[in-house]
């Protein structure tokens, strides 16, 4: 650690006047970090300089300002957030502070599939399952409750989806088990239920009936948006759920999912961005707290404003 610390201090001090430092923090999916890293390395080749990696981010020390500025602007165009850049040598103190913090950060552990599967199987059900309350309109009164897996916050969306599937299956099994059920969060009476389901829906086990088929206010089953990749299989699963009294919804992992233009008879749950999507989808469940102001409209379930 000490040698590394000396490395970045020496490199920072050695960057010539008129140079630039660009710092891309790690607060995003791993793909964003990889793209940023590639752009910073390209800038280092074009303008001279080097890229230093920290657990908490990547730092370009560029000998010329132009390529570094262009890399920072490119990241802004790609992700919507421009990494901070500092002219050198004036920017040395804030850059040193950023490096100090970034070298103290803990890197996310790399998961093997076997390790992740074991973790999801052994995770205490009390922690793995999460109950979220949802409101409608500005009232602050919960009208629905979502029972689903607690997010692991992995930087690889594919691993996160696999983990979600495994935990969903455990929650489903526990719901129909007399003893295990007590380990799940207590459902609130009178609130509409939103239940996260794995890719194949309820599967082949005992059908979990929700009520009379066709009730528009019946409980909601949330399937991953990726289910649509198999339109025929999805149609079968959705029809089975409707017969069992469920309202069918899809779960997206990103605000961009709201642009999907999916069929209006399906509800759509997704993280809500700061601005409403162009044609506001009917039957929206806005995820994330606090919900942005545009979610106050009638008919949008959200996780609350406070």
């Amino acid at each position: 650690m000490k040698a590394k610390a000396a490395d970045w201090r020496a490199a920072l001090a050695a960057t010539p006047a008129g140079g630039i430092a660009v710092f891309q923090p790690v607060n995003a999916p791993v793909a964003v970090r990889r793209v940023a890293r590639a752009l910073l390395e390209e800038a280092a080749i074009l303008g001279g300089g080097q890229v230093l990696g920290f657990p908490g981010g990547d730092l370009l020390l560029g000998n010329a300002a132009g390529p570094g500025q262009r890399a920072a602007q490119a990241m802004g165009a790609l992700t919507g957030s421009t990494p901070p850049s500092f002219p050198l040598p004036e920017g040395q103190p804030p850059v040193a502070a950023l490096c100090e913090a970034a070298s103290q950060a803990t890197a996310q552990p790399g998961w093997s599939l076997a390790g992740l599967e074991a973790h999801c199987a052994q995770w205490r059900l009390e922690d793995a399952a999460r109950l979220t309350l949802l409101e409608s309109g500005p009232g602050g009164v919960p009208v629905a409750q979502r029972l689903g897996p607690a997010p692991l916050g992995l930087d690889d969306p594919e691993l996160e989806a696999m983990a979600r599937d495994w935990v969903c299956r455990r929650i489903l099994a526990a719901l129909t088990h007399p003893v295990e059920r007590a380990r799940l969060p207590m459902l609130r009476p009178g609130l509409r239920l939103i239940l996260d389901l794995p890719l194949g829906g309820l599967g082949h086990g005992a059908p979990l009936r929700a009520g009379a088929a066709g009730d528009p206010n019946g409980p909601i089953a949330l399937l991953p948006l990726a289910s649509l990749a198999d339109p025929v299989g999805f149609a079968g699963v959705a029809e089975g759920l409707r017969q069992g009294g469920w309202t069918v919804g899809l779960l997206g992992t990103h605000p961009a999912a709201l642009d999907a233009g999916i069929a209006p008879e399906l509800l759509l749950a997704a993280p809500a961005g700061p601005v409403p999507p162009p044609p506001r989808p009917a039957g929206l469940i806005a995820l994330g707290r606090p919900a942005p102001a545009w979610c106050r409209g009638a008919g949008i379930l959200h996780e609350g404003f406070a």
Binding site: P29, A31, V32, V35, A74, A77, L78, T79, P157, E158, A161, P224, L225, A226, S227, L228, A229, G252, T253, H254, P255, A256, A257, D259, A260
Partner: peptide
């Protein structure tokens, strides 16, 4: 890239699309 990948990770797909244009 398979179209179904958009469904699995819309955020990542948006990033890739912008990257291709850039």
């Amino acid at each position: 890239v398979p179209a179904s990948e958009w469904l699995a990770d819309p955020g990542g797909f948006t990033l890739l699309q912008r990257l291709s244009l850039m």
